[in-house]
Amino acid sequence: MTTTPLRRRGAALVAALLSTTLVLTACGSDGDDADDTGDPTAQTRTVQADNGTIEVPADPQRVATIGNTTLPFIDLGGEPIGVTEESATNVARLPEDQQATYASAKILATSADEVDLEELATLKPDLILVQIPDAEFEAIEKQLELIAPTVFFGLDAEWKALADGIADAGNVADALSQQKKEFGDKVAKIQETYGEVIDGTSFVDISRGDFNDPGTFYIADIGCSEIARDEVGLDLPEAAEGADPLAYESLSFEQIGELSKYEVITYPVDAEGQPTEPFVPVVESNTWKALDAVKSGRALGVFCPGNNSYGAAIRYLDSLDSALATLPAEE
């Protein structure tokens, strides 16, 4: 059914369809609420998810998150009791309070594979939020549902739709609407302040990860710059429809020279503004130093704390905002 391999950094186009269904879902679920008095855990409501219509507690208290739902749920102020492990880099980029929340949860599995189901049953959760590949979910669906109501999102759920679904099922919708408002304001502010730049400048976002072979980098058309392109409206390159993202192609350093056709280059930095460790070899190369954009101060470091939830996206936009402010004026 689903044809493109997408996870976490899904393409916005595909997601448009899905978010419609989820919006409908969100509307439907509100009506089912019984009166708000009495023991909140005894009440239930129904939510719509990729694994059907699920009856969940009205106010779940013991939530377990599996796969990509962990960080978005924590970002919404949720406090999961059990989680699958996140990479050290991802955790280090969280704000401190979120790091503490993550650290207090029980680790159910390294990465999302082989969730320790018996351990999960021991925790007695009242809600399980899951985003893992379809095939993996299929293998453990029955077991999970026996333990607690399970809400599953397929990998092609785009981050906004995922946030909607998680907020709905986990009963943290208030935090979500607050984040949405802040996000919208931030986008509007950037568009207003840098209107001319956005309209008349060609950008490219490049990056390099630990997973890149030495001497290679890639054009980041997925990840944070996707937000800059699709929400803010920056002129950033995009893969042809249906093709793999440009980011899947690693380019040799020989290709750095080709970047001269863009006016502004953005590259990844850490929270302190230093180039991220994997990216350092690019900054140190002679070809990079010889680029016009670099020589004239039009290579901007931007911090990307994650692109899978509103909180992280807002922090990214903050960083983009201050980076754009340093652009030298056009003659």
């Binding site: 880099t89 390294t110 990860g209 030495p214 001497g215 290679t216 690693s250």
Partner: peptide, 22 residues
């Protein structure tokens, strides 16, 4: 590698064998 996603990621390329960037 399976218990340490970052090491896994870094090793995907090394396992392919390459002469670039040395």
């Amino acid at each position: 590698q399976l218990t340490n996603p970052e090491a896994f990621d870094a090793m995907r390329y090394w396992n392919a064998g390459s002469v670039v960037g040395r």
